[in-house]
Amino acid sequence: MRHGIGFWLQLGFTLLVSAFLMVPIGMSILAGFTENYFRGPSSGLTTRWIVEVWERYGDNIFLSLGIAASCLVVTILIGVPAAYVLAKRQSRLSRMFEELIILPVAIPGLATALALVMLYGTFGGFRSSWTFVLVGHVLYTLPFMVRSVLAVLSSIDLRTLEEGAASLGAGFWTRFWTIVLPNAGSGILAGSLMVTTLSIGEFNLTLLLTTPFTQTIPVGLAVAYTNARLELGSAYTVLFFAMIIPLLVAMQIWGNPSRTSTKRKRRALEKVVSP
């Protein structure tokens, strides 16, 4: 295959954009392992910044992971049933609900955070605990769980599947557990990856919800960037990358449930046909 000049121009442009995206990532990783970034890598490579980050900010990391895990549990518990209801009943009301729950994502997180602080800020115990941050994260990530499950449930012929199951004697809850949930699996997986990734990285909404004792990773990062040396901030970023990049890669692999929809449709059919 021979390529014209347009191909090479576009390739060059695309490579340039990729470099724009990748070079700073590489530089920050390098900075995180450099003894003195101002003097450059010739000053020697070290892991002492990483160790220092772990000592100083280790708590943040565990808190963030805990919040992400709790957020995932909550969004699955309330989001998956909600998505099922939205898939089953497409009325004006259900569409309105679908629109409403997206608002915490559509409008700036700062506004939502400010609203939460204004209303619940005086509930001392709640305000100062990590559950206050969790509430914000659930609001922000819930639409992603609902949408990816809804996308999968709309791509299969849910009604026929359920009618098939009902004709074989399955009641509402039996259908929900044996037909709906298994077939929503890929959507729940995609949604879970999205929820976890977003929760770990959320800052806009989080900053106002945290206290000095409930700092998550991005808040800790912001503090490190403004108060600590560049090397320390970079080392913290390296740790953050180590957590978030596997999630992003997983999202590229499993994050698009609609691509496998025909395969799933067939599987879904087989499930109903075979006893």
Binding site: L21, V23, P24, I25, G201, P218, L230, T237, I244, M251
Partner: peptide, 20 residues
Amino acid sequence: VMTLPLAFPGVVIGLMVIML
């Protein structure tokens, strides 16, 4: 590569700009 920084939080993007 082009889609990797999806869902990088804004603070980290800030560091990327500082690096550039």
